[in-house]
Amino acid sequence: MNTTTVDREDLRTLVAETLDLDVAEVTDTADFVNELDVDSLMALEVMVVLERRYAVKLDEKRLAEITSLENAHRLLTEALEKKG
């Protein structure tokens, strides 16, 4: 398995579980803050969950970028590529 591959559907399920949302609500582009009522601490909770699930360190300075599933996927993919 390529370590830089992040299955988007797995990620969607993980994010939905973390945020207590229905999977269908977490569309690729749904804005976490404005559409899904995710607050800043929840974004940090998502970041910590992703770090544990994918065994990767995410840059805390990029926390503000976790605003949608699409962005979370990109951030995670970049971190895994960097990790090699």
Partner: peptide, 16 residues
Amino acid sequence: IERVREVRNVDGVRAH
């Protein structure tokens, strides 16, 4: 302001 609730992975969040 934050409503008191369960924080997922509370230890991981705490470390930050």
